[in-house]
Design a protein around this nucleic acid. Structure first.
Lengths: 241, 241, 241, 241
DNA sequence: CATGAATGAGCCTTCATTCAT
DNA sequence: AATGAATGAAGGCTCATTCAT
């Protein structure tokens, strides 16, 4: 009935997948609570109800386990976003939806978020990771929104899109970290409206243009004759190697 | 002779202070290189040319040593900023100077910056620290600039100043972290201009209003009849506990 | 077609034997390369292209696998030697042939030799092993040669045959170990001539008495009136329990 | 009074040395009993009455601890031998004394001997060790005896001295290993006489020339007109690198 | 004041071995 | 007959921290 079947009904590979999932969940929770170094594999294994050794069957090292955490999350977020963005017209509306969904995902997965923001983001080795590649892929969605907006004239062309994205992401993450560390605001989603108002300032559109979150498919495309030619080449930054 | 006296000329307390300083410098360097967990007290003590045990004379624990790193840096930055801001007129000019000086300080002290951005910022316990109090004090400077700008009409009043500050700081830190982890841009100060352009968008002023960094004391105060009454109480956020 | 049949043509028991053989070969190679402790069952199983668990079908433990290595080798060496010695006359010639064949076998099977000399010979438990019994059986061939020589007068009787054998075997093994560990000499067989000259000193015969290896069936039996009665009872040592 | 002072009377460095010694003794005993792999550092530390961590103060790794065992032993043996050989005339007498002392040392230190013969001698890495260098230095004493004997005519020149030494050492070690593993003979020194008789065969001297062990300083030098010119260059083997 | 010396506590990781299928 | 999957058990090694001197 529920989505977590009793163990006794699982077949071999099914059971294995479930155990792998439980390990990732446990790791996420415990890493988020105690940090990477203070968490122990034993602790995680016990929380996931598997043996210590089993953890190493699927995650070659403790660090590798850490780096494996974002995988599914990012994939899910990416997919959802891809799906929704197809339905939305207008770069600003797309950005709105993107930021909203991202914040919502963080809000719904505070432990994953803590691992991402407090442990992974600052890890030098993480950058060379498959998981980080996925994150960069995710960021390209935002880049695409921005360049679409620039092309269409929705977003003015006199701002470097790399720095625009940096400001959007930076502001969002700053908010998220304050939420994680200081419970401010208590509900992360309370931060969305003011945050997005700030973002609108960045992209120079009036707040009225946006309707209710995720449903704001108002007609907005190229309404003015703005050339759409940015001063900056789209994605000219070396970050997307 | 020079500003770094030879050890043999130092009196007792003088020598002690010098040793304390050397420990902090060594800790900063080594924490920035290897991270908190992978750095060892022995390593730091050796680099500072003191005994392991001496480290504990001044820093009760390894973590306490870490938390002691920002102290002098923040004090210096705070003082410098206080001095300069007195000479500058106009909220936007002040913000400009503030962000410039902050970025410059980071650029000049990459090891301290790495410790701050990659190790301290994400540490739950750091928040309850005297050092963090100093950082919050520093942030108030920005808040004061913002509220001054709102009062004067330089900064429009329809944006929550807390989120405005979050965006400014978030964007700046995002840039800094990319510089630390990915050497992008290679020289941090290259990021200042585009970054500040973004910031100007946030505060809704045209870039032309700003002259050369640190010297831009143009007349800007209340030029429009804007009431100067913000929708938001200044510093209404619980972060400044 | 060839002497190594393709797997697909093997019947059940035939295939099983082949797999057992592959395991022993792989174990020999890997034990010789990495030593007993650093070799893993998984590694051996993979090299033998069988599952880990299958190894345990035939070898109850890892140590048992180790102890199973000499079996076939010693049997082969024993048989060959038995065959050849029948064709050879004279104790000294027989000893010559024996030592030559042994050295040649080592030279041709360096991996087996490494396991024997570096891993098995020093293992306390190995002594109580069936494999070790075979080795002792092999040593009896040498004892028989010696006592035959003593009887016939070829080998003088004033030397304890146990210590004579110890010297022969000890010298040979010393040479072999130097070859294994230090590649000195590069080709083990280069050591045979000088080694055997030393051995001849031990048994008090002139080198000229020996012709080409393995084919030196010169007439040598009792040429002097030596009583042939040794001071020592043959095989009075407790080693042959 | 005794050579093991009570702990309470030791000063700092003295105590430390004593502890280091106790570790080596404990390691020797335990390695000899259980072999290298089955012995644990905890076990050794406990037997030496020090903490696990202290072991690592002086011996960086478990393997390094193993390799440190022969150091003092070889030095002692080397010194003793140097001292005695100065008093002895005649190469054969010197060899006699050398082998006797070596066997006696083994007999008196069975645990050290077990480590040497059963664990170190077969360790590939041991060869590149400082301790192994000392052993090679020790072997040179034997080489010097041999070449002295060849020069003087005591030892006949028609045998390769490298192989002669190999036979001497090989025979002796073979005996020692049998004593270690099979308690045959029960008292190692019982093996000396027959062993040396064998050795005399190798060097072609009559047993009568030798008196009681360690006291046999009979005049023996060059009595025959033997040329003393060996066919072999002394120490032409690459082992003495 | 300074420190050399000492350690307790703990964790990641490995594998031989087992057993359900 | 054959094996994939799972793990219990264990050990080398590290360091923050303490304390006698």
């Amino acid at each position: 009935m529920s989505d977590s079947k009793g163990k006794e009904f699982m077949t071999g590979p099914e059971k294995t997948e479930a155990r792998k999932s439980r390990i990732l969940e446990a790791a996420t929770r415990i890493f988020s609570e105690k940090g990477f170094q203070d968490a122990t594999i034993s602790e995680i294994a016990k929380a996931a109800d598997v043996s210590d050794a089993f953890v190493y069957e699927y995650f070659s090292t403790k660090e590798n386990l850490l780096f494996s955490i974002p995988g599914e999350h990012m994939q899910k977020l990416h997919q959802d976003l891809d799906f929704h963005l197809k339905l939305i017209r207008g770069a600003v509306n797309k950005l709105h939806a993107t930021l909203y969904m991202q914040l919502l995902y963080y809000s719904d997965h505070p432990e994953f978020t803590a691992v991402m923001m407090l442990t992974l983001k600052n890890n030098r080795k993480f950058i060379d990771t498959e998981a980080h590649r996925k994150i960069r892929g995710y960021l390209k969605i935002i880049d695409r929104c921005i360049s679409e907006g620039v092309e269409s004239g929705e977003i003015h062309a006199d701002i470097d899109p790399y720095y625009l994205r940096a400001a959007l992401i930076g502001a969002l993450e700053h908010i998220v970290i304050n939420w994680l560390l200081r419970k401010n605001p208590e509900n992360l989603m309370d931060a969305f409206e003011p945050l997005f108002e700030v973002c609108l300032k960045l992209i120079h559109k009036e707040p009225e243009a946006v309707g209710c979150p995720l449903l704001s498919q108002i007609k907005c495309p190229p309404q003015n004759g703005c050339s759409g030619k940015s001063r900056f080449p789209v994605s000219a930054n070396p970050e997307e190697a």
